[in-house]
């Protein structure tokens, strides 16, 4: 494998299969995230989006197929090694360290994530707390944060690991429109700092607004890939997904 070149793939899934008992959650899936890209990942419930995230971040091992991060095979590595190579994720339901302060939980990612020479863990943590607008709650115990704050904290913890690739799982779900806009703004800043993003989201407004390309899954397989404009016109997508949820 050669190293990454400009415009090369940050993340590649090749023929990835994951079965749970008799159920095939992800079926021979190919997916690419290019350098400098925000890739939307959408599909109806049970399409395999979160399973794919679990595969990419090393929580599950694929039954077959390969996953590459900047050209390097990662599908056999434990989660913490994948994180240290530069892939971080957030959770659909935030999983904060409840007995820590907000700053301490960001510090976990900053200290144990990807090593970047010349940066200190506490500086990185401060920067991520600021980026996610959590300064006022910096020293608050995590259990006292509300949902929107916990989602931003989860994002801050992931960013503190200094990822090359960030997997964002439904960060807008359950937020009000103002909070959604604020979150999308944060993701734009993250992207502008050179991080590739794969973004799973049910809030169409958010994902269509920010994604360069959208990858649509249904029953664990790809049904469409294209720009937001292209996929929303794709009959297969309308049939599988948008047709069922679009309003009048």
């Amino acid at each position: 494998m050669s190293g990454p070149a400009p415009g090369s793939a940050l993340v590649e899934a090749r023929g990835v299969v994951k079965r749970f008992g008799g159920l095939t959650a992800v079926h021979r899936l190919d997916l690419t995230l290019w350098e400098g890209e925000i890739l939307g990942l959408i599909g109806p419930n049970g399409a395999g989006k979160t399973t794919l995230f679990n595969l990419l971040s090393g929580q599950f091992a694929p039954d077959s197929g390969k996953i590459l991060l900047e050209g390097r095979e990662i599908h056999h590595l434990p989660s913490h090694r994948i994180c240290r190579l530069g892939l971080a994720r957030t959770f659909q339901v935030p999983r904060p360290f409840l007995a820590m302060t907000a700053f301490e939980s960001v510090l976990v990612g900053a200290q144990f994530g990807r090593r970047v020479p010349g940066t200190s863990a506490s500086d990185t943590a401060e920067r991520c707390v600021a980026l996610t607008r959590l300064e006022p709650r910096r020293n608050a115990p995590v259990h006292s944060l509300n949902l929107a704050e916990r989602k931003r904290l989860d994002l801050a913890r992931a960013l503190a690991t200094r990822p090359r690739v960030l997997l964002v799982d439904e960060v807008a779900a359950g937020l009000n429109p103002t909070e959604v806009r604020e979150t999308v703004g944060i993701l734009r800043e993250v992207h502008a700092s050179g991080v590739g993003i794969i973004y799973v989201e049910h809030v169409m407004e958010a994902v269509m607004d920010i994604s360069h390309r959208v990858h649509v899954l249904d029953h664990g397989a790809t049904i469409a890939i294209g720009t937001p404009g292209e996929v929303t016109r794709d009959p297969a997508v309308i049939e599988a997904y948008l047709g069922r949820s679009a309003g009048p």
């Binding site: 971040s57 090393g58 929580q59 434990p78 989660s79 913490h80 994180c83 240290r84 971080a88 994720r89 959770f91 999983r95 904060p96 360290f97 409840l98 007995a99 820590m100 301490e104 939980s105 510090l107 976990v108 990612g109 200290q111 144990f112 994530g113 990807r114 913890r157 992931a158 503190a160 690991t161």
Partner: peptide, 25 residues
């Protein structure tokens, strides 16, 4: 200490700790 932070993180959520780069083993 950093070791203390890692111990607390793993005690509170092993998976989230691993995904933050903490060498759980």
């Amino acid at each position: 200490t950093w070791s203390g932070l890692a111990l607390r993180a793993v005690a509170q959520d092993r998976e989230a700790a691993a995904l933050s780069g903490v060498p759980v083993n």
